[in-house]
């Protein structure tokens, strides 16, 4: 492993860097407020059931606690989802899938870490195969601690996220673009320096005007060095002649 991976700063409190100024048109501000309110009242969740915490979601969704009365409903593809629920311990192999899924979701997107395992590794704190602290790899909006948290706790966490969204505090998806170098460095430390995803985060950061001095750095340079262009998979159907179909 090269030297670049050694000097990732020790866990730092990342701030959302506010770049945008408030819109001057008062009507536009009213409109933004409406959109924010609707965002908080309509959340499609993609529950990535990585661990035991997933078992608390069905009761939270179904008749006993009924998430739908808060406007929260499950969705099955990352393209349609707003919140990514990570329920339980995250092994290194799973983390790759989580990052792929997260990058495919449409902004604004929110991540909720459920169970202690996503907070600090929980009972897997000494496991060699588990990513301990989720927010090193993805910006997490809300943690719901507990082993496992009961559905009441899950719903109270979701309500907290709703309040954060409607008041404009839940903007951690911007952190992923603004501090991409930090997140990528942590990812490379786990997956090796040739780690790459199909999503071009740097181009997206440019598109959303979220480039900061922390977006690019030594880790993104490493990414560019190893990046292979994506190619479409060749689709081929082969049927052996003698084999009866």
């Amino acid at each position: 492993m090269s030297n670049e991976l050694e000097n990732i700063p020790i866990r730092q409190e990342l701030e959302v860097l506010q770049s945008g100024q408030k819109r001057t048109n008062p009507l536009a501000n009213v409109f933004d407020g409406l959109v924010k309110f609707c965002r908080s009242r309509s959340m499609f969740m993609l529950h990535y059931c990585t661990g035991c915490g997933a078992i608390e979601l069905p009761p939270a969704m179904t008749s006993r606690f009924d998430m739908e009365r808060l406007g929260i409903q499950p969705m099955v593809t990352p393209r349609q989802a707003d919140i990514l629920l990570i329920t339980g311990y995250v092994s290194i192999k799973t983390l790759k899938r989580i990052i792929l899924t997260y990058e495919q979701m449409g902004s604004p997107k929110y991540v909720i870490g459920i169970c202690s395992c996503t907070v600090n590794g929980g009972m897997y704190w000494q496991s060699y195969a588990t990513a301990k602290v989720l927010r090193d790899y993805l910006p997490v909006d809300v943690y719901i601690a507990g082993c496992m948290p009961r559905p009441e706790a899950v719903i109270s966490g979701l309500r907290e996220l709703m309040e954060d969204i409607s008041s404009g505090r839940a903007e951690s998806w911007k952190k992923y673009y603004q501090h991409y170098d930090y997140y990528l460095g942590n990812q490379q430390k786990l997956f090796g320096e040739d780690w790459q995803t199909p999503t071009d985060i740097i181009a997206e950061a440019r598109h959303y005007d979220l480039m900061t001095e922390h977006t690019l750095g030594e880790h993104t340079a490493l990414l560019e060095k190893h990046q292979k262009p994506l190619e479409a998979l060749e689709m081929r159907l082969s049927v052996k002649d003698k084999q009866k179909v």
Binding site: L34, V35, C38, R39, R41, S42, G71, D82, M105, G106, S107, P108, Y208
Partner: peptide, 11 residues
């Protein structure tokens, strides 16, 4: 709410 939210996505 759902429709306004979907039209209001950044991506």
């Amino acid at each position: 709410y759902d429709i306004i939210k979907l039209y209001g996505k950044h991506t």
